[in-house]
Simulated assay, not measured.
Amino acid sequence: MNTLRNILAGGVALAALVLLAAPQAEARPQYMKQFPKQYPALQAEAKMNKCGVCHYGKSKKNLDDYGSALKGKLGKKNEKDVEKITEALEAIESMDSSVEGKTFGDLIEEGKLPGTDPEE
């Protein structure tokens, strides 16, 4: 009985260590909250794609063209000021996307998420 208890305790301890050692996500919920408010026609798409609005691939370090543009206009990491987030979203609308001849604003007006995965 003690052996079973020790094995169970060891398993719990190991699981706790793995969870503590796992990399923590740097979620930016304030951006995902503001994007659908700014572009209500894309609310369903944004909700379905979540981080995929600005990121591609498995790593959240991978910014698509839209995410890179937004990062450049925000000015500071993890901006929380809603007004500054809104200003940055508006500022990048006129920037060229990776889609030839289209700005991010053009794609948004067409009902498409503006980010383009460079791997596609």
Rank of each mutant, 00 (worst) to 15 (best):
K112M: 12
A41C: 01
N78Y: 04
S97F: 07
E26T: 08
T86G: 01
M95I: 01
V12E: 01
L63Q: 10
S59K: 14
L14S: 09
A25H: 14
A15S: 11
S68R: 15
L74T: 04
A16V: 15
Y56D: 02
Y56K: 02
S97G: 05
M1V: 11
M48K: 15
D81C: 01
H55P: 04
L14I: 13
A9P: 02
T116I: 14
G111P: 12
S59C: 05
C54D: 07
T3F: 05
S59W: 05
Y31E: 14
K60P: 00
I92G: 09
H55E: 10
E45T: 12
D81M: 03
H55V: 11
G10S: 11
V99Q: 11
Y39K: 08
L4K: 12
G67P: 09
P23D: 10
I92E: 11
G10E: 05
G111Y: 10
E87F: 07
P29E: 09
K58W: 12
P29F: 04
L113S: 09
G105E: 05
T3K: 13
A22N: 03
K84Y: 03
H55R: 08
L8S: 12
E90Y: 03
A16I: 14
T86K: 15
R5A: 13
F35T: 09
Q30H: 12
M95Y: 02
C54F: 06
L14T: 13
L4W: 04
Q24L: 14
A16F: 10
P36S: 12
L113T: 08
D117H: 02
D65G: 06
K60N: 12
D117V: 02
K84G: 02
E100S: 13
L89Y: 13
N49G: 00
K37T: 13
G115Y: 01
K102Q: 13
L20E: 00
K76I: 15
I108M: 04
A15K: 01
N62T: 05
P29S: 06
A21F: 04
G11C: 14
K80R: 12
P114S: 04
R5S: 11
K61M: 13
L8P: 03
E79M: 15
K60A: 10
F104A: 07
N6M: 12
A88Q: 09
L42M: 08
G11R: 03
E87Y: 03
A16G: 05
E110R: 06
C54I: 11
A46E: 11
K60E: 09
K47W: 09
E100Y: 02
D96W: 00
E90T: 14
H55C: 11
Y66V: 03
E109K: 15
Q30S: 07
G10W: 09
D106Q: 07
V53E: 01
K60V: 06
C54M: 10
Y66N: 02
